[in-house]
Amino acid sequence: MGRAIEGLNQELASIASGTTQRLDCNSENIEQGLARLVLSLIELLRKLLERQAIRRMEGGSLHDSQIEEMGLALMKLEQKIRELAEHFGLRPEDLNLDLGPLGNLWTDEKK
């Protein structure tokens, strides 16, 4: 129960911050706002690419060297996104943009 309440509080805090800070590109924090937008899109692409790479790896359509190469590239990309996000004072959850009534940027389609 405690974890559920904590989770709800986090979501509310996220909504609260979203009402005033969602891509708030004013003159003082335009760098952070733009970084958030760009890094969110790159992170979305990284997740999609990683999923596709896993599918192909498990489907047997990649050689060992290709698996290693793709895995390494995705691992480095993830590290770089994390470093850049930290540099701009962004948390990992900040890269999942709140798109209002549409929900968040990154969530899977219904299965």
Partner: peptide, 11 residues
């Protein structure tokens, strides 16, 4: 992030 040291281990 994973603690992997190789790309294959990461995937």
């Amino acid at each position: 992030p994973t603690n992997a040291t190789t790309g294959t281990a990461h995937l």
